[in-house]
Write a protein that binds this DNA or RNA. Structure first.
Lengths: 196, 196
DNA sequence: TTGCAAAACGGAGGGTGCCTCCGTATATAT
DNA sequence: ATATATACGGAGGCACCCTCCGTTTTGCAA
């Protein structure tokens, strides 16, 4: 992960760079609108490139997805790091989960990507899933360490529960519902004096 | 919903009945193995009928799904009715949710069907979703009436949360994890003396 | 500049699945 | 036995997936 590209080989071709960018933008638009099953040929058309070009840059549908959503994922990671440094642990955890729900509202495609991540044996979603797991992990561990939250739930479990709850909601106004469900869940997470 | 078919028209043809049955069995097998995206032509092949025959009996993929899983859904409905008559309300609710997880373990296809139910604007999954919602509703309302559970979560929300949590788990041993998550959720559902 | 090889382009093509349509076959009723 | 309602099956048109390869463009060296 250190040195990347100082080999005195050739400079990457300008058209290649440009086309890659175009495809990426087109994919963002098309996936946002049509979900993860959208036609790759539609993406190519919209980008104004041949289907072959699309496939050369992104050999699989998954590769394209990952490229599109990597940015969002990074953002969530940063948010977690910020939140981990301040305020009540449980509040911070809840805040991150809420932010996640909100982000899903605008970028529904990522959801699908994550759903697939949990499903298929494809390793390609590893990046997103790992990063997000690490992100919640940060917050979760702090809350556990503070003795405010039970310790038998893993970060991955928590993330899956979150995504699952989002995934199943499509009705108008679903955000409110999901946020409520998240609150219920966080309540359930709390260690409580008299609990079983 | 009363009289169904006493019109003195013709008796249904024997081959038609037989083929319908065959397609249904084939579909059960194929969907179980290959998920909800399995090829309908594969179903037809396995059933030993033409693709046209399949489509005549089940005009859409969804119709076929519904037929396949109606039975499972009915079973869960009955279980809810049984549980509603006995024991602690919260325990009953938890028991039903657990049973659901267990059933999902054997019939993963239903999961996918329900996931689609929440997603697409297709009304065809209404049956499953409505029935199950009614089923949890039974238990949830009883628990709310007993003052043991908060009253701002709907049966549909609860069901979606449940299915979502299942949906996102595919790893070996996922059942244990999901059951734990369900427990956390039910804990969170509880009305508690000092909570916010 | 010019020339040339590496790199990228694009789309034809072979495969598969979806669903419709309609000529043919068959079961039921008279 | 015949008529006719009913069901059958698969060909056909369309869309998508992905690969392969002849053509075009580009960067670099002379």
């Amino acid at each position: 992960m250190g040195q990347v590209s100082q080999k005195p080989s050739r400079r990457p071709r300008a058209d290649s760079v440009r086309n890659r960018q175009r495809v990426l933008e087109a994919a963002t638009a098309v996936f946002s609108a049509g979900g993860p099953d959208a036609s790759l040929e539609a993406v190519a058309r919209r980008a104004g490139v041949g289907i072959g070009t699309l496939y050369r840059h992104f050999p699989t549908r998954e590769a394209l997805f990952e490229a599109v959503y990597r940015h969002e994922v990074d953002q969530l990671g940063e948010l977690a790091r910020t939140l981990a440094g301040q305020g009540d642990p449980v509040d911070a955890l809840r805040a991150w989960l809420h932010a996640n729900v909100r982000l899903v509202a605008t970028k529904k495609g990522m959801l699908a990507a994550l759903a697939l991540a949990a499903h298929g044996p494809k390793e390609l979603y590893a990046y997103s899933f790992e990063h997000l797991t690490r992100a919640v992990g940060l917050l979760l561990e702090r809350a556990v360490a503070a003795g405010e939250v039970r310790d038998d739930i893993t970060a991955a479990d928590l993330l899956r529960a979150l995504v699952g709850m989002c995934y199943m909601n499509d009705q108008p106004g679903w955000q409110v519902n999901v946020l409520r469900l998240v609150d219920v869940f966080v309540d359930g997470l709390r260690v409580r004096p008299g609990g079983s």
